[in-house]
Amino acid sequence: MPYYEKSEDWLHQSALLLQARPQTTRVTTSYFLRPAIRPSKAEKLAAKEARRAKESASKSTTTSKSTTKSTPAPAAPTTESTDATSTATQKPPRGHLVLKTFDPHSGVCLKYKTSKAAEVGRLIQMLGQLGRRMAALPVDEAKEASQAADVVMGEAAEEAKGEVSGTATPAGGTSTPAAGGAAGGGGQGKKKKKGKR
């Protein structure tokens, strides 16, 4: 399954999936850590350093032509290579976060991936919203609609609500104007951002 570009899209689709299959749907949040430089790359760097050091050492040995000086020369590249690897490890590891909504009965899998720390709070808030749906608590749709409308998807939300639950149509009707207004606000925000860039 492809990843969603925007977290709001992911939230919306996950909410719909939960509405359809509340009993079996689960939301998984995976936090991955990877080393900043992969070992192969680090090794390559180290190898490069070692090679250079060897070349310089061989030059120095050819100029000096003394066996006593050549013995410490092989030791030098090894220390340099260890330095290189240590600098590689000093870089902090990179992390990324994958949110996945999965329903084993229908096989639907919705994913969202991010590596921004600033998004974590918002994403957990989204998990909370989904949690409310899981717990079958009443969901204040106007609030969610305003949040979901950062992406311009008011119309899509209308259609989806209409399709999924006929009983919820009055609530959907009331929430639509709010969604439209919020969508306008979202649009303005985007324009501002573009202007800044």
Partner: peptide, 28 residues
């Protein structure tokens, strides 16, 4: 297990823990 009544309190704390724990993500 979160009882329905505790949902909001739980997610507040959950967000704090996750924000602190996920330090390897890209800062702003």
């Amino acid at each position: 297990i979160i009882e329905p009544a505790d949902l909001e309190a739980f997610y507040g704390r959950y967000a704090d823990v996750c924000k602190k724990g996920m330090g390897a993500l890209k800062p702003r």
